[in-house]
Design a protein around this nucleic acid. Structure first.
Lengths: 196, 196
DNA sequence: CTGCATAGTTACAGACCGGTAACACCCTAG
DNA sequence: CTAGGGTGTTACCGGTCTGTAACTATGCAG
């Protein structure tokens, strides 16, 4: 729950999990490695035995986030096997839940805002992972029988991305309240259009 | 152009302008007050004579940004006096230009991502300024004779916000390339719907 | 019991951070 | 000429940051 989770698992896992949580809550530059290791119930030397630098830890956290997001997609497939349209609606509902989960936006987007050096290792994996997510949504739209699958997928992802930053700036009483309505409306109108 | 602009104006103005530029490029926590004053051709003592803290400087930079954005709206009115629909299309074009200007997103959104303390003074002005911008877009949509003005305004602003973070994460060859198409399509379809 | 990998502890290096004190300088208003 | 406000300079404070060194404690495999 709090920052001080010290379940008995391998130090590396505890560090990774704690770092993910703290980076998410306080931002990357807002958390020092000392604070992470203390909250993880270990110490700095152990961290540097498992990660060669803070930057590498950041990258691993981002990859872990992406893995968790990947599990989400598999859950959709498990819940609605083969029904791609139902999975698309599930994605919309899940997105809406995430909007109200906490006032923080997407970890990748936040990391990109903080890590401005063009050659920062995190920037490459952010791009890579975001592109993978986009491809996934495009595929889902296409398999759901939607004609302009790329356009719908891009529109939906821009809306979602925008809603997350909106929550972060004005809170969840702002434009983001309309997200589901917008998304569902788009799906309907794209379904109406002729498939290629 | 570069960080080292040292035009001869009052130190306070130079500091403000330089800080805006550097915060935008490198993020807030990525820039120290020493670096700002040096780039502004002055020194730390002078900064602290004009701003009581770095936090206050941040807030002033955000307000200056909002003022610049306000000037943009007045330019629309000047270019298409009374023609609100033309101004709305001008907003879309301007947004598209900003998307390709540089790979950095909205300064307010980036600041919100970095400054996570809930009581940080910048968070209040970010919310205040973002809400003002939203109100402005809603008014424009309404005055352009669009029925569901709030919904269109919110959709457009989420799309734009999302496009900005998309540029920051995957670059300007990603989903953001479709922004104008999406926005124009929305305006058309909202115009088609019956006005209240 | 021995040996070895893993983990914890303390201390430190070197840099940078925001912010302040004390003082010298210039320019302009009177 | 003089007084004073705005500015520049230097040095410093206490704190925090990433990263490392040297050493100790633990637990498990043979």
């Amino acid at each position: 729950m709090a920052d001080g989770v010290v379940e008995r698992s391998r130090p590396r896992d505890r560090i990774l999990e704690t770092a993910r949580d703290m980076f998410h809550k306080h931002g990357i530059k807002g958390v020092g490695v000392d604070a992470i290791t203390e909250a993880a119930g270990t110490n700095k030397m152990t961290l540097y035995r498992h990660f060669e630098s803070k930057d590498e830890l950041i990258v691993e956290c981002l990859r872990a986030n992406a893995a968790k997001a990947g599990a989400m997609w598999e859950a959709f497939e498990a819940e609605f096997p083969g029904d791609k349209l139902a999975q698309l609606h599930a994605w919309v509902r899940k997105a809406a839940v995430m909007l109200n989960a906490d006032g923080r936006g997407c970890d990748m987007a936040n990391a990109a805002a903080e890590l401005t050096e063009p050659e920062h290792p995190a920037r490459l994996v952010i791009k890579e992972l975001k592109e993978a997510q986009r491809a996934r949504l495009v595929t889902l739209c296409r398999d759901a029988g939607i004609g302009q699958a790329e356009l719908l997928a891009d529109t939906l992802s821009l809306l979602f991305e925008g809603a997350r930053v909106s929550v972060q700036t004005v809170g969840n009483e702002g434009p983001s309240t309309q997200f589901v309505r917008m998304a569902e409306g788009l799906i309907v109108s794209f379904r109406g259009a002729a498939a290629v």
